[in-house]
Design a protein around this nucleic acid. Sequence first.
DNA 1: GATGAAACACTCACTGT
DNA 2: ACAGTGAGTGTTTCATC
Lengths: 171, 171
Amino acid sequence: MRNDSLLIDDIDQHIVSCLIADARSSYREIGETVALSAPAVKRRVDRLVNEGVITSFTARVDPGSLGWHTQAFVSVTFRGNVSPARMREVLTPIPEVVAAYTVSGGSDLLVHIRAADMAHFEEALERLRTVDGIGKTESTIVLSTLLDRPTPIDRSHRDGTADGRVGVPVR
Amino acid sequence: MRNDSLLIDDIDQHIVSCLIADARSSYREIGETVALSAPAVKRRVDRLVNEGVITSFTARVDPGSLGWHTQAFVSVTFRGNVSPARMREVLTPIPEVVAAYTVSGGSDLLVHIRAADMAHFEEALERLRTVDGIGKTESTIVLSTLLDRPTPIDRSHRDGTADGRVGVPVR
DNA sequence: GATGAAACACTCACTGT
DNA sequence: ACAGTGAGTGTTTCATC
């Protein structure tokens, strides 16, 4: 565990899980479940946002409902040396790229692509393949999403300390 | 494009993008940007939630801030026939599994795993490998997340119709 | 961290188009 | 069917303790 850390207590974790479950719940409602007044909850939430623990509040949508019926993971191998920063720069303008990770192993990059249909995916893949520095690509088409959920927040079974605090790296 | 559909107009799309940008913004605020009264916005949001277009409102957290420093994608090959429903059932209780997709190609399943560190990942992988029906696994360790963003909602460059409506499949 | 008060937002029934 | 209005209630957000 890292020790260049601020401290997040049980109440903070509880507040965060409330907000993950429903980002629109009121401070008073959250306050009831964590036994705190609404202003106290607001101060903690503001602090969690400022510290970067909470990065945003967002609506999750069903991609299929909006017409995005196809997704794939594309393994990319670079031709020569490409910096991650540069790769992020060239991937950001491609709206079909919803996630990208540098990886270890057989390839250099794993790209998650969403598209309306196969034709749209093929078009997006072609745009990806013409990006400078990209060599081989290998696509894995997603047939169905079995599970898709937020990061769990409770690590107490692993490294929570006796007083319920966990280490948090300063950014 | 599917045609067993309800209709979502430009205003709905605009409302959805407002909520993706900030799930805690007020109906009045959204109403200002889409030129509608707060009750009208609420009615549309309620409808979008009931239709399943908006699946939830959630807080996004920085996994690193909560101590989850490791992630990997695991390609799984089944031993014999396993139903997707059964696979979902056995994966759901493993908290480290944050996403899982059935895929076409070399393997049957792609599993996204998050863990505190490598030791924790190894432990979660071991739990995954002992799941009945799972044969070979191949792990790809994530070095860094380059990009991670919601599905775009604007498909107008592809199949929006002249009146700005897009088809939406009934679930 | 709690309280109290003022400003603001939510939510309903109702009306109009 | 869908948008606006007004009123009552609940919520946010301060300053203060």
